[in-house]
Design a protein around this nucleic acid. Structure first.
Lengths: 207, 207
DNA sequence: GTCCGTTAACTAACGCCGTTAGTTTCTAGG
DNA sequence: CCTAGAAACTAACGGCGTTAGTTAACGGAC
């Protein structure tokens, strides 16, 4: 086959299959050869659509961030909007946990990230925040959401009672975390989010 | 050379040179062949000291986390201790920005991370927090610190006035962020940290 | 002092990887 | 109809992490 009558590949199809591979088997499992194989094609053909493999991963990231609901920003009161947006942002990450290390990595120059930054900044300024604070709050929320989506805290612990008791005096019961990591991570996120927005509201009152 | 009179390698020396490579040229620049070359050795010799390359990177991570000052925990009042510890944690990350994506990645089962979790959990419980809340607060702080160390928020913007004005109505002045990313990221971290701990103090009062 | 198991270096090689060069054939636009 | 460019191909390069198998020095036991 030299050139098919109808194209075998498209950017969308490549991103779709690449996302499936990463979701199923992790970032490291995404190689140009495997991606091409699952697309029914040879690896170099990908380079007719993307200049590098990194651009493919970038496109995966953009498509994930593009799915974050922004409708509450500028509509609801800012504290509620901020919390709802943070939850939507985090759950978009959580739907593709293997991509998060890449997403959180570099500065996000992808279009969807800019649209998101624009929306949250605009909502805060409209609500009465000074521009400088609005920038910092957008950044802080990104820090928190990215960090919480990144690595499970509770997964760091293994279900072995003896392991911690010996060396870490306060972690006697830490082994129990292993079995409930999803719940622990979720409730830690909720606690932090409430505290953070609560602190921001107090700061806002002082303006 | 088959076996030298005094060993050429040691775990410490490998970790030291590996850290220097990652700091200088990034995680991707760390290959077993380059690491070996800079150690004056052939690549497979590394496998006498570490089972996999990942274990080498793990050891880099552990040595960084081991440097975080924990002395304020259990000594100062918990809100101040928590803030000072978060700043120390973050600046340890910031000293090795290229390692952070790896550090933040998986659950941290390395000894230094466990010691750190033990110290912060112990300090909170001693201060009067219920154990469940202490766990969540430790996790939340880790989320925030890891997220803030991970990717610069401000670096996501390029110093090009026209780029944003067209597509993102509120980001008219975003291009100015590019020149001040360090300051923006630092002050966003400070603002978030103050708000977060402030919110936690209010929650503590309500107990 | 000699033996011997272990250690720490080596060389050679395997099967991956991302990517480039060069070729072929089909499509789309004038 | 002709032609420029797009989209597939094959072949190959240099690098990667890792394994197998070899060799010589070390350190303890007799």
């Amino acid at each position: 086959m030299v050139r098919p009558r109808t194209p075998l590949l498209s950017r969308d199809r490549i991103v779709e299959v690449a996302t499936a591979i990463v979701d199923a088997d992790g970032l490291d499992a995404l190689s140009t050869r495997r991606l091409a194989r699952e697309l029914g094609v040879q690896a170099p053909s990908l380079y007719n659509h993307f200049a590098t493999k990194e651009q493919i991963v970038d496109a995966i990231g953009d498509s994930i961030v593009a799915g974050v609901d922004l409708s509450m920003l500028g509509r609801d009161p800012w504290p509620e909007a901020l919390k709802a947006w943070a939850r939507a942002y985090r759950s978009a990450f959580r739907a593709h946990p293997n991509v998060v290390p890449f997403l959180a990595r570099g500065p996000a120059r992808r279009p969807a990230s800019l649209r998101l930054a624009d929306a949250v900044y605009g909502a805060l300024v409209t609500a009465g925040w000074p521009p400088g604070d609005a920038t910092r709050i957008g950044a802080t929320m990104r820090f928190f959401v990215a960090g919480s989506a990144l690595g499970s805290f509770a997964l760091g612990f293994v279900d072995d009672p003896d392991l911690y008791a010996r060396d870490y005096p306060h972690l006697r019961d830490a082994h129990r975390l292993a079995g409930q990591h999803a719940h622990v991570d979720d409730s830690a996120f909720e606690l932090g989010l409430e505290a953070l927005v609560d602190g921001l509201e107090r700061r806002f009152e002082r303006l």
